[in-house]
């Protein structure tokens, strides 16, 4: 994080190069893919990155069982076929999965609640890695704990695999409200605020000063339509992750392209109307209110 050093040659994997890649992904769509064919389709639709995983969240829900890091062969197949960044997920706290993914040369690791947690108390110490990490959050305290551990990008969690955007909205609104509130607090209240939200003080102080997260803030979990994507951009997302919403829909290629276009033109309802036209069936989806406490993925994370 240091600013002015004298050095010769390259300084690899600095904080600035990690956050920098997240900056480059802004205004775009990161798509979940499970095969090389899907990855190519995503790239052709204009995805700014792909997330390589074994099953999309909707199938993880349907199939049950333990959900783990993907087969390296499948990840390598995707790395070979696309030129855009390739992300992959590790289980919460599973630093060995993370080290394997780093060895594969993935561009970003998502320490994700969508997989079955490997540790019910601790997350990965992401500062130790050369590869950047993204982590989910439901509120500001959780976001700042993850950034404190070294996450270079935050995504609000939503409820993955449902196609219901309500939790994504709830988490983004909560996060943005808490950021706005911090900016209004006098300095002598910040330590108590940090204690109450369980967040590192220096990051609380930084957010109060700059009025945003210190790293890019994306949205995930439940986006199924171009309008959903545009909604999340309006609420404060700087990019959108789309999981099951594309490949569980009737016409993945068209829907993928439409969601990419909707993120660029999120503030132009006339264009959004044109973009949303004739996309075929959206994913069927699950109403989040019908989920039992045990079926909720967003509560995973400590």
């Amino acid at each position: 994080m240091s600013e002015h050093k004298t050095w010769s040659g390259r300084q690899s994997s600095t904080w600035r190069t990690k956050v920098g890649l997240a900056e480059m992904l802004k205004g775009g769509v990161i798509m979940d893919v499970v095969t090389s064919e899907q990855a190519k389709l995503a790239e052709n639709a204009g995805a700014s990155a792909v997330m390589a995983l074994e099953r999309v969240p909707a199938d993880i829900r349907a199939d049950g069982g333990v959900s783990r890091m993907s087969d390296p062969r499948m990840i390598k197949g995707i790395q070979e076929i696309v030129s855009i960044p390739v992300m992959a997920k590790c289980r919460i706290g599973h630093f060995m999965e993370a080290r394997i993914l780093e060895a594969l040369g993935v561009d970003f690791i998502d320490e994700s609640e969508v997989l079955t947690p490997a540790d019910d108390q601790y997350h990965v110490d992401k500062n130790l890695f050369k590869v950047p990490f993204v982590c989910g959050c439901r509120n500001l305290g959780e976001a700042l704990r993850r950034i404190g551990e070294g996450a270079a990008m935050i995504r609000t969690k939503g409820e993955a695999g449902t196609g219901d955007v309500v939790e994504a909205v709830r988490h983004m609104r909560t996060l943005m409200d808490e950021i706005r509130t911090l900016t209004l607090l006098p300095r002598d209240q910040l330590m108590t605020a940090a204690r109450d939200m369980g967040a590192p003080y220096d990051l609380v102080e930084e957010v109060a000063r700059i009025g945003r997260l210190p790293v890019p803030n994306f949205s995930a979990g439940g986006v199924a339509t171009p309008a959903d994507a545009a909604l999340m951009m309006h609420l404060g997302a700087e990019s959108v992750f789309v999981g099951s919403g594309i490949f569980k829909s009737g016409d993945p290629a068209r829907r993928a392209k439409a969601i990419v276009e909707a993120v660029t033109h999120y503030d132009d309802p006339v264009k959004l109307a044109e973009i949303s036209e004739d996309l075929g069936e959206p994913m069927v989806g699950i109403n989040c209110d019908d989920l039992g406490e045990k079926e909720r993925l967003a509560v995973r994370g400590w």
Binding site: W7, G9, R10, S12, S13, S83, D107, K130, V131
Partner: peptide
């Protein structure tokens, strides 16, 4: 040449 300085783990700063 696109991406010719390598993948993300090869990203770097230099003076």
């Amino acid at each position: 040449a696109r991406n010719a300085y390598g993948r993300q783990i090869d990203s770097f700063e230099a003076a």
